[in-house]
Write a protein that binds this DNA or RNA. Structure first.
Lengths: 247, 247
DNA sequence: TCTACTAAATGAATGCCATTCATTTAGTGG
DNA sequence: CCACTAAATGAATGGCATTCATTTAGTAGA
């Protein structure tokens, strides 16, 4: 008996978007790279609320259960996305610029990337680097930058972790509404805080020149989050820089 | 006609835990304070995964839908919990100790409280202070502490935000597995990073004396997260302290 | 005192979500 | 040729937050 004619392979787009028939297809439809980029597209279009296994499957024109042949859970998808994002962090200044300038460039870039992906921060915090090659590559470059700048080896990890902690926290800060500190009706009972909030209003506008760059999104006027990040980063860089050996 | 006998109010604990009959009870069963403390108990016993509206209702011996007469969403419950936790943060050193010591005490306490409640961090980041009286009270005390220490008013909010960002990021770090940086099989391809991880292994053990205190949980040996926090906090305190006017 | 109205409970949906499982089909190694 | 495995479908499953109709109890105003 001859095989069924090829026309029957895609069984008549019933009504609109009928898909494959059951069974293994001749060439694989899914792989990790495809899942990762579909997840990123979905997040870009609908945010992390829109990133569901069902939506992902739909975008890939596949049944939801098919995804589980390639990832073991949704957490697994988040891991793939996370590691991909790490490759977008700019580490190019290490070795090409003085240590403090390289750290600043890296930190701004790192914060800007994850400001758009804060739901991944809890994932990163628990992710062993073994499972994340891009992440590991970033740490390697940064570690070398610190060592070459005269950092004592036993402090390098702590220093990076301290910077990362500040970066992750600052990424959340970017997502906060601009008027989050408005004390509203409670203003009278909190005079010092209210004065500080009022006093800081204009100060941010003439801030650091090291504005966000590169990460695609148009940036409005210099925001309060940027002023705080610049301030904390200056403090960390100068404080940590003091650990370097004269060499 | 006389009212039904009181015995019929609790209609015979059928099998085990039958509850109220339908309709408004004579005295209210729920209020925000009760919901908050039940939520905290639930989180303490089962973690944030165990904090579901159904579990909360069960603990309060109420139908899940009854909760929605007092809070408008689960997010609302998280807000209540969050604001309560803020009252546990130690601000007592402001006004009672030098600025840098007060900041350290506050920061350690803040980090320790939220290290056990990291799922709330995304909530805080977006929560307008208007809705959170305890949170506002904390900011008031801290703002006054900064102003009295000679901080220029227009920098106070930025400085606090920078510290908070570091604190939140560091709270995540506490939850990370101790071996998160083990490069595993990739060790050969990342020599600098691997050396840094190996070199930092023992260094944390003889760390800062300012260990976690107060927050109930027994703390093991000084962890890597504590070393990184101490390092970053030193840098931030000395860097930010430089902003103070001589006065 | 009757009568609306509102507050606070129940219980039965609803719809979404991640995940699992039985089944089908297609390549692959022995 | 045959057993095995990989990769798809489609139909559950159980848990989740949330909504709605309904019931009951207090309360304010006529």
């Amino acid at each position: 008996m001859p095989p069924v004619p090829a026309a029957q392979q895609r069984p008549a787009t019933d009504g609109g978007i009928r898909r494959r028939r059951a069974g293994r297809p001749s060439s694989a439809v899914l792989d990790k790279a495809g899942i990762t980029s579909a997840a990123l597209e979905l997040v870009g279009r609908k945010g992390y609320d829109g990133l569901t296994m069902a939506a992902l499957a739909k975008l890939l024109e596949v049944a939801p259960s098919a995804l589980y042949n390639h990832v073991s859970s949704k957490q697994d998808v988040l891991l793939l996305v996370e590691d991909h994002l790490m490759s977008l962090v700019d580490v190019s200044s290490f070795g090409a610029a003085p240590w403090d300038e390289a750290v600043r460039t890296w930190a701004w870039s790192y914060r800007n990337v994850f400001a758009e992906h804060t739901p991944l921060i809890p994932v990163i915090a628990v992710l062993p680097v073994t499972d994340a090659p891009q992440t590991l590559a970033m740490y390697e470059t940064v570690s070398k930058g610190f060592l070459d700048a005269g950092f004592p080896q036993e402090r390098i990890i702590s220093a990076i972790v301290a910077l990362e902690s500040f970066i992750f926290g600052s990424a959340y800060d970017v997502t906060a509404p601009e008027d989050i500190f408005d004390p509203g009706t409670m203003a009278e009972s909190t005079p010092y805080f209210t004065a500080a909030v009022r006093g800081s209003a204009g100060a941010a506008l003439r801030g650091h020149p090291q504005a966000p760059e590169g990460s695609g999104t148009a940036t409005g006027p210099l925001r309060a989050a940027d002023a705080a990040f610049a301030l904390g980063l200056d403090a960390l860089v100068s404080g940590l820089g003091g650990l370097r050996k004269a060499d």
